[in-house]
């Protein structure tokens, strides 16, 4: 992708002279990441039929999430005090944020495999930061279909929910999904670091990542007791979709939190990202490698 001429086809014995100029440090790093991404795209193109299957399969999972919400509204007119149109705004925010974070960062859940196969060692001896390398080397482009579907649900839901648009709400409808992406990305990274300490943690991380996706697909009023307290505010999932949706819809929080809480989403996302960065740094120092 970076320089298709030299990357594909037989490389020229002598490279064009413009390549000779010593690139600045920053652009050099970006060039390296761009090259990694290009390699990943070409690797996946080697399996064309599987790629199409994956593309369809991935969108299917998100479609069923939305279908589930529709089925639930088939037997009830309100879910946790929210109508179908209102609930779909929550679903849209959650689906888009999760799908995008899953596309960009989700494959970090394969960290135990990277450790077992030694890929993690290989990544550590290269002159680039480990996390971006892993993400770019294994970027699951097939998950793009899911992002597109999530975005479609989000756009359809906010345009049909009868939102009274103000400048602030327009800003929020743009910022909140992005904050959700950052938040879910942070959750993916933080939970993956468990495998630095416990390599056989298996699907444990799923309970927070995929559990968080399901949690954020419904109004938090649906849940009860300490479970709600833990997921919504202990881990911060209420700020992905529930509070931004309340602010967009202009509804008061049945649980009594003030209206501005919906605008706190970006701040919460940044805090989560900082925690993730810290967890990753500490985790890498505890890394024990495997094998011989």
């Amino acid at each position: 992708m970076a320089e298709p001429g030299t990357l594909t086809g037989p490389a020229p014995a002598v490279a064009p002279p413009e390549d000779e100029r010593p690139a600045g440090r920053r652009s050099g790093v970006l060039g390296a990441y761009r090259a990694l991404l290009g390699a990943q795209a070409r690797s996946q193109a080697a399996y064309r039929t599987s790629f199409v299957v994956d593309l369809v399969g991935n969108v299917g999972a998100t479609v069923f999430d939305v279908v589930t919400v529709l089925v639930l509204f088939g037997v009830t007119r309100e879910l946790g005090g929210f109508t179908l149109h209102e609930a779909l705004v929550i679903v849209g925010l959650s689906s888009f944020a999760f799908a995008t974070a899953d596309l960009l960062v989700g494959n970090i859940e394969r960290l135990p495999r990277y450790v077992r196969t030694g890929l993690f060692d290989a990544v550590l001896v290269r002159p680039l930061a480990a996390l971006p390398q892993l993400l770019l080397m294994d970027l699951p482009l097939r998950k793009v279909s899911r992002v597109v579907f999530g975005l479609a649900v989000l756009v359809a839901s906010v345009t049909s929910a009868g939102i009274h648009w103000t400048a602030g709400r327009v800003a929020l409808v743009l910022v909140a999904p992005l904050a959700g992406v950052v938040f879910f990305g942070a959750i993916f990274v933080t939970t993956s670091t468990v495998s630095f300490y416990w390599i056989d943690s298996g699907e444990l991380a799923n309970s927070v990542t995929y559990g968080g996706r399901d949690f954020t697909s419904y109004p938090v009023t649906v849940y009860g007791g300490w479970f709600r307290a833990l997921f919504a505010y202990g881990m911060g999932f209420a700020f992905v979709s529930y509070h931004p949706a309340l602010a967009l819809l202009g509804r008061a929080d049945p649980l009594g939190l003030p209206g501005w809480v919906g605008w706190a989403a970006p701040g919460v996302a940044l805090v989560a990202a900082a925690i993730a960065a810290l967890a990753w740094r500490v985790g890498i120092r505890h890394y024990r490698s495997t094998g011989s």
């Binding site: 970076a2 030299t6 990357l7 594909t8 037989p10 490389a11 020229p12 014995a13 002598v14 490279a15 064009p16 390549d19 000779e20 010593p22 690139a23 050099g28 060039g31 390296a32 761009r34 090259a35 990694l36 390699a39 070409r42 690797s43 080697a46 399996y47 290269r126 002159p127 680039l128």
Partner: peptide, 24 residues
């Protein structure tokens, strides 16, 4: 794994920021 050896080398040229001439 899935790329020709030549592509791996070319990628490493970017990763290690080696000028194309030296690399060749």
């Amino acid at each position: 794994w899935d790329l020709p050896l030549r592509d791996s080398f070319d990628l490493l040229r970017h990763v290690y920021r080696v000028p194309a001439g030296e690399h060749a």
